[in-house]
Structure formats: structure tokens, C-alpha cells
Design a protein around this nucleic acid. Structure first.
Length: 740
DNA sequence: GAGCACTGC
């Protein structure tokens, strides 16, 4: 605590009219802070407060947290780690960080108070809101930090909202997180991968840094779990501070019998609500784009029918689809008012938002009075045995059902119709959603943890431990890529790889690319592979979309096609219209450009040379060699003449995904993804020469590790030809830092 | 001849 013993300069000056007169770091009381809040002078800018400040303060006084200020400071001053529980609407996310700032006085001691959020928009809008409340300019005393945008001013910013991913990234390169006096992890109940790892790292760090305070904020249901997790400490327990919420009551209804078809039941329930319930908008949760568009059409048809039959009792309806890939602009439609009655004094119109899980956490829609919850979501699940991630439709958890129901009570008392029985709710649904760490491929996470100094990944104190098999898969991949040596230690190569916000295969390929003189091209391909799908395939224009795609396809490989698409986008001056005409997503391409710039900066920092090859044929070969350096574990060998492939080592029979543009089909291919949908497919595929694999990944392609079969025979044939490896590639494969 | 829930660096 020695760093905080310093007296406040206001105290030193003895100026009793200073707003922070008498404040001592972490010894402040609610009474002192309330007085400072009422003061005419802004303590942080020393400028008189604007009238707007006082207006906002008036509203803040009505928040439940405001009344609990004394209690908060009593707990905060005494404890290093605190759990804060409270439902939405209590004001904890906006107020607690400010209260902490008054206690820590980070503007005096040169430190920062950080508050993490799982989503960028939340970090941005909260920072804006809090800057307004504190009467300071956004980006100066109060700022935010998200990917691609750092709205902070070093030396001035003392309260920073940020995404959990950014803080995790900072923690991997500076494990002491010395810049921060207090770290607040908000929305911890969402159990994002980044927040989970941060909880583990902060629990360790708390022992080393007694001056660091940690606050975990979560929904009430999960608070006990965190308290147990952080509370296992001799003779002390971590205190729980409860903030009361202010939501309206929501009446919950269940079906009498299980519904065999939730889509049909959902449509029926929407019509029932529309005919029988008072005015008020409806929110229906479904699982995906296709389902949502189809249901919107059906509801519209049915209601139009009803209106025609009985225009005196049924009002018009508007169905608004909502899912992430719609993009922010089209998503705005959810805020449109409901339709007007068809004639004066006719029955009122109603808005029905049909949404994926995005409306459960990421977007809130005011005015929703009725929620229809079929009880499912689509979730990605990682299977470490097969090394694939697949999307499955799964039942939601009780916590999730409660969150969905709560969406009906934001503006006034509401109703929630659950399309399952109460018995199923009680006995079939899990209490909590499985945290992300139990469902994800952990390769990048593990690399970051090792870089952060975690010695034993298996014994690490996780809130929930991932499957040992998942950790083994991650360690195996990182070892094969030479990011970790055989003892699990970080190699110099792994250390540089960890600096890139990428899958390890991609960072390895990128770092290897200057060796093949095509790092500019690999940079582009890497960026394209790390953004969402750039191809638009509207179902009513499939032929046109396919034709447009054929024009940019490079028959040697989908990776080369991606490069071609990106370069065309740049040549066409980032034109959105051009993108749309060519059935490409301008949003995804713009994102790729952003990612590319970020990756380029990291390459420059590590003096990784940026080079290109002019001759197209030579360039394509160089790119395919660089691909081999990162993706040699994702190789397949053609079997038979039906277009089937066998994955190397795992021996899975796979087909080329129909989106694949390879022609003709090469004997050996490298693939970016293995997806299991109607059948096992490999997606984004490029042909390679087997001798490259033997040259560039000779350890992995040691024939002694192969079972007998067609693949081995084919590789043996290649081995008889002369194969050599350059010294630099050898060093890279041993995890040596590349000399540039 | 298929389909991408949702975040994040």
C-alpha cells in the first residue's frame, strides 16, 4: 500500500474549498464523496460543473447504488477482492467504477481504474455515458479501449472501459498489470473465455500485488460461485455486495405438454398474443437466420389473413428479423415504432421482433412486453477428439431463460410464454449456460497463458476447468508449430506468435512468410481468414452470386481466391456498391482491411519483412509453401475419383465443400476448416505439393509416425525424390526467432 | 451442391 500513502495534494494545499479536501486514498467515506459530487468544481478538471452535470446527478441520486454508497466504501476500503451482485438497471456498471475512482484517486497516483465488458459497443457507450456524468471529455479523463480504437490519453485517462479481450492481451504481455489500481470485471456471469482466464490470472496476481483491488460484478444467480472461487483463502472470505435492481415483474407461462415442433408452436403463440393480448411489442427467440426469415414470412401471411377476415378486431403486424449478420444498419429496424392502425380507431398494430440469442445479451429493445421463448439456441461446441467445432441447436439454461423473460419487463410489467413445460424447466434445463472455456478450442488461449507466465496449464486455478483433452490438443498443436518446446516452454517463435491476435496456425504462417518473399500476400490471406465470410449468397439470386464468384475464383486454391477478392476490393477503392454488385460483403472486407493494418503494425514491430513477388506463378507457389508452414496438420490426400479426401493422420473421409473453387482436384490439399454439417467437409482448400510438406514440416511428416495406408505409400514415393530444407526454415521449426 | 449462433484480440 506504500504507493498510496501519499497525501492528496488538495490536503497538502490545505484548501478547504477544494472538492477533494480531506480525501485519503481508499479511506474515503460515502459522506465525503456525496459532498464532492455536490461541489461546484469538478475535482478532476478543476473547472466549474456544467448545468448538465447537475441534471445528470439528480438522476444518479435515484439509482439504488447511490443509497448504498456508505456500505460500498466500508467494504471496498477493507477488502482486496469484492463480488458485486445485481440485476440490470441497478446502475452498477456506470456508478461503481466512478465510486472506485473517488476512492483510488488514480488521477493523483498516476494509475488507472479499469472496467471490462464482453462487448465493444458496451465499452464504448458506457465510457461515453460516464464521461458525461463526470462532466469530462470522452477520451481524456474517462476513455475506452477496444480493438482498432484506443480512446484514452496516457497520463490523463484514469477511468477506462475496455473489452475483456484487450485486458487479457495486456495481461499476457505485462502480467503485473501495474498500470491499474483497481480492475473491475463486469458481466462475469456471461463467462466469456477472456473473463474466465482473467479471473484466474487476477486471483494469482492478487497474492503478488497487495495494492491491486479486484471487483467481480455479476448477475445475482452466479455470485456465490465467484465468491467460493475467490474466497478460498485462510481466515477470510470475500465479501458480497448486493445492489438492488429495478425491473418490472414478468409473469411466466408454461405449456401443459411438451411441444413437438417449436417453430410451429412459436408462430401459433405469436398469433395468440396478437389476437388476445393488450398492445405491446413481442420478442420471439429462434436459433438462426434461415429459421427467422421463414417464420417472419409465415407470421406475416397468417396475420394478413386474419386482418382480411376480421379487420375490426385484428390490427396490422410488422415482423422484424434480428441476427448478427444483418449488420448494424438493418438491425436499426428493431427500434421502429409498431405499425399504425389500418384506419382511425381500428385495432392497434404490433411489432414482433424475431431474433437469435443476440437479443438476450447484446441488444436490448425497449417496449417489449411479451417474450416467447422456445428454449433453444444455436451454440458452437468444440470436439477435441475430432478437433472440430460444430454448431448445434441446444436447450438453453435456466439462467438464460430468466434473462430472456426479463426482456419483457424493461418498460412495464410483461409476460413470458415458455414453449416447454414447467417440469422440463425444473428438471431438464441446466442451472447455468456452459461457460465458453468448456466449449472452445483453446490453442490461442493456451499460448497466451504460457506467455503470461502460467507454468502448468492443467493445474491452473480455473473457475471451471476445461477438459484435459482440450488442453492436450492445444499443447500438441503448439508443440507441432514449435511455439512450445517439448517441455512445454515458450520458444522465441511462440513468444512472437502470441503477439498476434490470431489462431496459432495463422501466426506461424505469417511469421514464416518473409522466408518465401510473399509476406504481403500472406498478410492479406491471414486477414481474410480471420474475418467472417465475405461471400454473400442470397437464396433468391444464387445463380448470379455463383457467377460473380466464378469470375474471381483462382482454380489453384481458395486461399488464392481470397487474395484475389481482397485485391479487387482495394482496386475498386473500397466501394460498397461494387461489393454488393459482386455479391461480396463490404462489411467483412472493411473488417479484413482493419485486421490487415493491425497485423502489419505487429509485423513491423518485430521487424518481419514485408515483401511481394511480381511473377504470378512464382507468387502462388510461394504462398502455398507459406501455407504449409502453418497448416501442415490440416492436410488431406485424394482417394478414389469421387472427389473424396482422407485427412492425413486422422484418416477421416471428407469431401470438398461445395463452396470450394479448386479445379482440377489436386492430389494433396491444405484446408483451413473441417466442418461437420450434413457430411464432413473441408472448406477453404488449396492444393499443395507433398514434397513441400516433407521439406517444411519434416518432423510432423516423419513416416515412422504414419500408419500403413495409401497416404503413407504416396508420401514414401515423394521421399525418394530429393528433399532439402533451408537453414532458416529449420531454425523456425525449432522455434528459433527468425533473424530479419 | 452447402448454409454462419455469438463474442473478442
Amino acid at each position: 500500500m506504500s504507493g498510496h500513502r501519499r497525501k492528496s495534494p488538495y490536503l497538502a494545499q490545505g484548501a478547504e474549498d477544494e472538492p477533494l479536501f480531506g480525501f485519503r486514498p481508499r479511506k474515503v467515506t460515502g459522506r465525503q464523496v456525496r459532498k464532492a459530487l455536490e461541489h461546484n468544481i469538478n475535482p478532476f478538471t478543476k473547472v466549474p460543473h456544467t448545468p448538465r452535470y447537475h441534471e445528470m446527478l439528480e438522476a444518479r441520486r435515484k439509482l439504488p447504488v447511490y443509497d448504498q454508497m456508505d456500505e460500498f466504501y466500508k467494504i471496498f476500503n477493507k477488502n482486496q477482492i469484492i463480488i458485486i451482485a445485481g440485476e440490470t438497471g441497478a446502475g452498477k456498471t456506470t456508478q461503481i467504477p466512478q465510486l472506485v475512482a473517488y476512492a483510488d484517486l488514480p488521477h493523483v497516483n498516476g494509475k488507472l481504474v479499469a472496467c471490462t465488458q464482453p462487448r465493444r459497443v458496451a465499452a464504448m457507450s458506457l465510457a461515453k455515458r460516464v464521461a458525461d456524468e463526470m462532466d469530462v471529455q470522452l477520451g481524456r479523463h474517462v476513455g475506452y479501449s477496444i480493438r482498432f480504437e484506443d480512446m484514452t490519453e496516457p497520463g490523463t485517462t484514469f477511468l477506462k472501459y475496455m473489452t475483456d479481450g484487450i485486458l487479457l492481451r495486456e495481461a499476457t504481455s505485462d502480467p503485473t498489470l501495474d498500470r491499474y489500481s483497481t480492475i473491475i470485471l463486469d458481466e462475469a456471469h456471461e463467462r466469456t473465455l477472456a473473463t474466465d482466464i482473467l479471473m484466474g490470472l487476477l486471483k494469482l496476481l492478487a497474492k503478488k500485488r497487495s495494492d491491486l483491488k479486484i471487483i467481480i460484478m455479476s448477475a445475482t444467480l452466479d455470485a456465490r460461485k465467484f465468491r467460493n472461487y475467490f474466497g478460498i483463502k485462510k481466515g477470510s472470505s470475500v465479501p458480497l455486495f448486493k445492489v438492488s435492481g429495478r425491473a418490472h415483474p414478468v409473469e411466466v407461462f408454461y405449456t401443459q405438454e411438451p411441444e413437438p415442433d417449436y417453430v410451429e408452436a412459436a408462430i401459433r403463440t405469436v398469433l395468440m398474443v396478437h389476437r388476445a393480448e393488450d398492445p405491446g411489442d413481442v420478442l420471439l427467440f429462434l436459433t438462426g437466420e434461415e429459421e427467422i426469415e421463414e417464420v417472419c414470412k409465415k407470421i406475416k401471411l397468417e396475420v394478413d389473413d386474419l386482418v382480411n377476415q376480421d379487420p375490426d378486431s385484428v390490427g396490422p403486424i410488422v415482423c422484424v428479423p434480428l441476427y448478427a449478420s444483418l449488420g448494424p444498419q438493418q438491425q436499426q429496424r428493431i427500434f421502429d415504432p409498431p405499425p399504425k392502425p389500418q384506419r382511425p380507431n381500428g385495432p392497434p398494430g404490433r411489432k414482433v421482433v424475431v431474433s437469435t440469442n443476440i437479443a438476450e445479451t447484446s441488444l436490448t429493445i425497449d417496449g417489449i412486453v411479451y417474450v416467447i421463448d422456445p428454449g433453444f439456441w444455436r451454440v458452437s461446441v468444440y470436439n477435441p477428439r475430432l478437433r472440430i467445432e460444430s454448431l448445434l441447436v441446444c436447450p438453453i439454461s435456466k439462467a438464460s431463460a430468466q434473462q430472456r423473460a426479463g426482456r419483457a419487463g424493461r418498460t412495464r410489467p410483461g409476460k413470458c410464454f415458455r414453449l416447454y413445460t414447467e417440469k422440463d424447466f425444473m428438471s431438464e434445463l441446466e442451472e447455468q449456460t456452459h461457460p465458453e472455456i468448456l466449449r472452445s478450442n483453446l490453442a490461442t488461449t493456451v499460448l497466451g497463458m504460457v506467455k503470461a507466465g502460467v507454468r502448468d496449464l492443467v493445474k491452473f486455478d480455473y473457475v471451471d476447468s476445461p477438459a484435459p483433452e482440450t488442453l492436450m490438443r492445444a499443447l500438441e498443436l503448439l508443440n507441432n508449430l514449435a511455439a512450445l518446446d517439448d517441455d512445454g516452454n515458450l520458444t522465441p517463435l511462440g513468444s512472437v506468435m502470441a503477439e498476434f491476435p490470431l489462431d496459432p496456425q495463422l501466426s506461424k504462417m505469417l511469421i514464416a512468410s518473409p522466408e518465401f518473399r510473399c509476406s504481403n500476400e500472406i498478410l492479406t490471406i491471414t486477414a481474410m481468414l480471420s474475418v467472417s465470410n465475405v461471400w454473400l449468397l442470397p437464396s433468391n439470386q444464387r445463380r448470379e452470386a455463383d457467377a460473380a464468384k466464378a469470375l474471381v475464383t483462382v482454380p489453384d486454391g481458395d486461399h488464392l481466391t481470397l487474395l484475389n477478392v481482397y485485391n479487387s476490393y482495394i482496386r475498386n477503392k473500397h466501394d460498397e456498391k461494387w461489393a454488393r454488385n459482386n455479391f461480396l460483403s463490404a462489411r467483412a472486407l472493411a473488417e479484413a482491411e482493419n485486421v490487415r493494418e493491425q497485423l502489419q503494425r505487429i509485423m513491423e514491430r518485430y521487424e518481419l519483412e514485408l515483401t511481394s513477388i511480381a511473377d504470378e506463378k512464382m507468387m502462388y507457389n510461394a504462398i502455398r509453401k507459406a501455407l504449409c508452414c502453418g497448416f501442415f496438420m490440416q492436410v488431406a490426400h485424394r482417394v478414389g475419383d469421387q472427389g473424396n479426401y482422407l485427412t492425413v493422420k486422422d484418416n477421416q473421409v471428407v469431401s470438398l465443400h461445395p463452396s470450394c473453387g479448386l479445379h482440377p482436384q489436386p492430389e494433396w490439399v491444405i484446408f483451413n476448416e473441417f466442418v461437420l454439417t450434413t457430411r464432413p467437409f473441408i472448406r477453404t482448400v488449396t492444393g499443395v505439393q507433398p514434397k513441400w510438406l516433407l521439406e517444411l514440416a519434416h518432423v510432423y511428416f516423419d513416416l515412422a509416425t504414419f500408419g500403413d495406408g495409401e497416404t503413407k505409400t504416396a508420401l514414401k514415393r515423394v521421399l525418394n525424390e530429393k528433399v532439402g530444407t533451408s537453414g532458416r526454415v529449420k531454425r523456425l521449426n525449432k522455434g528459433m526467432k527468425k533473424q530479419c
